[in-house]
Design a protein around this nucleic acid. Sequence first.
DNA 1: ACCGCCGGGTGCC
DNA 2: ACCGCCGGGTGCC
Length: 853
Amino acid sequence: MCCPIFSGVMFFNRWMSSWARASEDLFTDRNEINSETLSQAIRAAASEEPDADGSVLFGQLQGTVVGLRYYTGVVNQGEMVGLVREPQNPYDRNAVMVANIYGNQVGHIKRELAAAMAYVMDNKLAKVEGVVHYGTKNKFNMPVMLSFWGKEENKNTVVESMLRRGYKLNTGGIKSAEAFLCFQLKNAFDNLFEGLMESKDGEKEAAKSVATPLLLHQKQALSWMCSRENKCTLPPFWEKRGDLYYNTLTHFSAREVPERVRGGILADDMGLGKTLTTIALILTNFHNGKPLPVEMSVSVNNMKQCKFWARVDKYLKTDLLHLLIPCLNDCLLLLSSVNLQDQFEQHVHANVKLNVYLYYGSERNRSKKFLSSQDVVITTYNVLSADFEVSRGSPLHGIHWLRVVLDEGHTIRNPNAQMSKAVLQLKAQRRWILSGTPIQNSVKDLWTLLAFLRLKPFDVREWWNRVIQRPAMQGDRAGLQNLQTLVKCITLRRTKTSEVNGRPLVSLPEKMVCVEQVELNQQEREEYELARNEGRSTIGRYVAEGTVLRNYADVLAILMRLRQHCCHPDLLAKISSDLGAAATPAELRERLVEKLRLVLASGSDEECSVCLDSVCLPVITHCAHVYCRPCIAKVISTQQGTARCPLCRSDIKETELVEVPLEEMEDESSTHAKKWRTSSKVQALMGNLLRLQSEDRSIKCLVVSQFTRFLSILETPLREHGFSFVRLDGTMSQKKRAQVIQDFQSSAANSPSIMLLSLKAGGVGLNLTAASHVFLMDPAWNPATEEQCIDRCHRLGQKRKVVVTKFIVKDSVEENMVRIQRKKQDLVEKAFGSANTDKKTSRIDDIKALLEL
DNA sequence: ACCGCCGGGTGCC
DNA sequence: ACCGCCGGGTGCC
């Protein structure tokens, strides 16, 4: 097995001097480059560090570190040391190297002991950790207390294998974490981000180039962010002792100042203006506390301007740039990236010209020189990781940025994800994470964030695990306390309900939600009842047979048809027939694709039963159940040839998983071809729109549906009545979206007054504050989706009272859906945490309720 | 490094 | 003199 940390250190030792020599960058001091190189090397190496979850202490053993006089690494009394296998050592393939926190080698473990440890370490039976309690001044060797940690089931193997080689693990006096501490732990997590909003550093005015006036709490955030970038405060747990810098947790000390973290986590609630504050930071705190020098398009003497630019270019074309990475793991969030650009236009003074480049799309300019000439480069996590995987020559990784800002930073919480690895490799002087939800489930999620911020020594996983994660997970009070301190130092978090000087941070205009009942006309009602009775008898049969889950896709298809009836008859254009009737494989495939599309469009099964999270890369099995491709692939590979569908136990094969072909995602042609007709719901909407228009022509509306084909149908009457409208759905390209949003947000007299919005395109970060009225054409299964959509306009920047109208067809499946929505919300509120104990059963109950069975 | 180990010098007491 | 003992050279893995 190779030994990554070791090679990393070697790399550093060999190249350190040349790095230092080469570093003549005006804006970066030497230490920064050096430690950057080292930590990068170590970080890349340490990414294989296993999780410390559920580790128990097997026992301890006094060992010896030898060969001290050959190495420069020193340790303090009580200091933690790392033990790294060194199988390539020419003298002993069992060698175990001892290194301090900075990766400097201290010595080796004595040969015989190393041989015993090598077996345990190489077979991953235990993780061995060392602490030096005394003898740190010794010349030739020193004692080290070794602790063996691992999974309970490996304990005996480890103890016995060490004993066979004459090393007895001392297992006495080990106290295991008490169960009741779990409760405490949960509390501690919940409170981790509490109390972070106490006033930090007063407030700061934004540079003149910021067009939008900052609110008080935003000025406070700006002040905090500037001071995080400019002040030379030591990172948490470091203190100066004599002429040394000492880490109180690891007991490591160094002569050099520990690299400070220029940045942090801005974890304000959604809607408090994190983006605006960040834009203000970019423009206000460029270098040495000076604002970003940007071109003013006011007419100046030409010559003078040229000279000015020559100077500015010198700043900007070096390698000091901003890289903004908005969240982009599905099409909903794509919008947030475009929106970001929109926000630059909105919040930056019109006279100021800022070069903002959107780095995505196949035509993106990969030239390092070009990218370096921009003031701001915006890209997505996907693009970044795609570039990173393709080759070492990823343009974004070749640039030393002034700032890297991660929007929706919690996307990188999984350290094993390619995206996270790509993000961690970015080179930057200042690093920021914007996130509305910093810790979702556990302390584990924090590691990548701290690693990104380069918070020493926790950017190396081992030290994070030993000092913070494991103690915290095991309910150790000091561990939790340290975690809290750590987070507190680098995070600013305010909630919507936080107060400044006794007043709420933001006051949004009032929001009114009303339900408008729609009555079907006689013909619609007859058609609806026909479909309902048919569906009822089919589902009733499934319930009686106990085969609801096996026929889940069918059930959803029935519900789907009923929901479509409620909106418009033309939505039912395609009716999928029974799977069993498929004659050829091609036909079967076609039907499965159709069902998958129905399931996805219905929005009913947003979660994969394997990961219990939203389905990503959806595939459908031959038994018509939908999963994330990676999840079901894992199930299939672990069950080796005898794989069964987790929901219905039918045989499944990897080769039989079907996904929706990309080009098939939407076909509009069929609907356009038919002669247009109206429906009760369409008329209800049009009545509202016409009334509003007559009351106030400046009012803008969002018309939201889950069915993009319904949006298409709505285009006809809107055109007929002369409304100016735009449309935004998931199928549109980034550029098109940006254009549409810009048009809609414009306050020009001839700007569109209506946006047709597909529910799923209304993702986080999308800003549609120009609208003050929202029409939800059809109920969603998940009320949170609706809320999220409403929040696109009921957010900071909204000047008017927001009115939301939900159309619900009377005596229909829609009414029942609303009932179930409420029930689910109650359930979540009442029994928090135990809500997903029996999801499947509750889903069957839901289906019964929907059809009044 | 005030140890252990190695190997050459040496050899009654 | 195929041992023991002495004392100098030496020293991580």
